[in-house]
Amino acid sequence: MRPEPVEGFRPAQPAEDVHGDVSVDRLALADELAGTAADGSTAVASADAAEYAMRLGDDALVLAQQLGMWIARAPELEEDVALGNIALDLIGHARSLLHYAGTASGRSEDDLAYWRDEPEFRNAWLFEQPNGDFGHTIARQLAASVYLFELYSRLVDSTDPTLAAIAAKSVKEVDYHRDHATQWVLRLAGGTEESRRRMLLAIADTWPYVDELFVDDALVERLAATGVAVLPSTLRPAFDAVIDEVFAEAVLERPTGRTAFIASGGGRAGSHTEHIGPLLAEMQVLARAHPGASW
């Protein structure tokens, strides 16, 4: 059977079908890849909701960009697939969120991803911390996915229907991300002496960036008052409870004492660590070399 032609393919072909005896399904890209809003709506975000969506979208985008670097470099093929899958989910979340954020100012998801500079990015510092070794990536994944799971679990009840729809789709995916990270924390902490040493170091290096996730500010207070946003501080107890459970099973502890630094944070206001500059430079270089081009 001849596969259905895709737009742009001229159906006229020599008599022989190059696809032989295999019938190939017409492959439509999923809606999330095609860039529609998660609920298919064309709702326009308020200025505050747009700023909030940008924070969430930037968290997802920056993390996806980092995880994408593991593809073809992971410790085993199964992890090339798993980390790629997680990155792909996060890109989907980022696209929906940035698309929505852009509706307030007439900008597209790509305008926001490729044409904003460092101080205009609103991600928390955790997400821009470098991949490091696999242990560091897993420690960052644990903190990120447990936080995102708690956030989206609550955001499904947002009074903003677009945010609620995006959260409803994303929460199932970050639940898998959380499971993936948890399984690896257990394996690395309970595997060999070397893996345990690396896991401890990774937790210590990652934890300074956890507190920033739970800081409230005027924007989220305004949005939480009308039920649009979730107050980050209210997610902390649930986050700690999950982490404590994972750490108890892995025989790990939350870092304490003199080396338990807490980074000042500031990503929500556009102040960043030194890692985001090179990350954005790489991500944006081609798009910026061709202003106005479409891809």
């Binding site: 999330e32 996806a64 960009q65 994408g68 790629g84 998801e109 798009a287 891809w295």
Partner: peptide, 14 residues
């Protein structure tokens, strides 16, 4: 992957 020129292309390439 890290330099794909749009988010859609990045997702497809990944």
């Amino acid at each position: 992957i890290t330099r794909a020129p749009s988010l859609k292309r990045k997702a497809i390439l990944m």
